[in-house]
């Protein structure tokens, strides 16, 4: 069975993933929530890293596409809703990429990438992760849809 993964990210280090969009972290969570409604399940926990929602601009989530249609993965849905509830409590203070000092932002992007490295490795998608914000490394689709 081929497992199909999909990377949702607003981190420029993951600009090569199909669902990369330079939106706020909360919008990434919302996009993943819709994806879960369509049957996908979360691979990584939506609240990684010791930052609260307004403390850093990036979020990268990996979902696994359903192997058969129908059904909702309830643990994934519960986790994403709990995470969104937390994000909502910071409504109005959520950062969008591009508003911080570039060097600080680059550090956030770097750490975000490192925090999902293990998850990407699980999915054989580590090559999607570029080393820095300027690095447009060759990307391979891997098993990403």
């Amino acid at each position: 069975m081929v497992r199909v993964f999909c990377v949702f990210s607003n981190n420029p280090r993951l600009a090569g993933s199909k669902q990369y969009r330079p939106v706020s972290s909360q919008e990434i969570l919302l996009a993943v929530r819709d994806e879960i409604h369509r049957g996908s399940s979360l691979v990584n926990h939506p609240l990684y890293g010791n930052f609260r929602p307004h403390q850093q601009p990036y979020r990268t989530l990996v979902v696994e596409k359903p192997s058969s249609p129908g059904g909702v993965d309830v643990p994934s849905l519960t986790l994403i809703e709990k995470a969104l509830a937390l994000y909502r409590s910071y409504e109005g203070r959520i950062m969008t990429p591009g508003i911080l000092d570039p060097s600080v932002e680059a550090d956030y992007a770097y750490v975000d990438g490192e925090l999902v490295r293990e998850t990407l490795r699980h999915c054989h998608l580590e090559e999607l992760l570029s080393e820095g914000e300027d690095d447009q490394k060759s990307r391979s689709g891997g098993h990403e849809e």
């Binding site: 979360l42 691979v43 990584n44 926990h45 990684y48 994934s76 986790l79 925090l115 293990e118």
Partner: peptide, 8 residues
């Protein structure tokens, strides 16, 4: 305390 749900 890992990131992926499977590890958890």
């Amino acid at each position: 305390e890992n990131v992926t749900l499977a590890d958890k």
